[in-house]
């Protein structure tokens, strides 16, 4: 009477452990921190992130490495404001 597997259930196979995506919207690629690593740097846009390991295979972004990302943001803001002005 029911289709055996729903779309949600079939999508389960697309779950990826041990990695996450760079939060910068143009960096669609995944960041894969080495097991236990506390920070990870995006090879594409240079942003840097602090990592928390909730489980041995479940890393999550804890927050930005402030100094690195604030500096990148400052430069970008200058650029944008120059263009806008």
């Amino acid at each position: 009477m029911f289709k055996d597997k729903s779309t949600a259930e079939t999508l389960k196979s697309t779950r990826t452990y041990g990695q996450f995506r760079c939060p910068n919207p143009t960096c669609l690629d995944r960041l894969v921190p080495k097991p236990g690593e506390k920070t990870v740097k995006c090879p594409k846009c240079g942003t840097e992130w602090r990592v928390v390991w909730l489980k041995p295979d479940l890393p999550r972004i804890r927050g930005p490495v402030w100094e690195t990302n604030i500096e990148i943001a400052r430069k970008k803001l200058e650029e944008v404001e120059k263009k806008g002005g």
């Binding site: 452990y17 939060p23 992130w49 479940l58 999550r60 927050g63 930005p64």
Partner: peptide, 28 residues
């Protein structure tokens, strides 16, 4: 099983919803 094995719910079961704020603040 479908619900609890999702990465987002495993995270939520440890950190609660504050993880959402953390993730959102990370990118602004």
């Amino acid at each position: 099983e479908q619900i609890t094995t999702a990465k987002v719910n495993q995270t939520m079961g440890i950190l609660g919803t504050p993880f959402i704020w953390g993730a959102t603040n990370s990118w602004g």
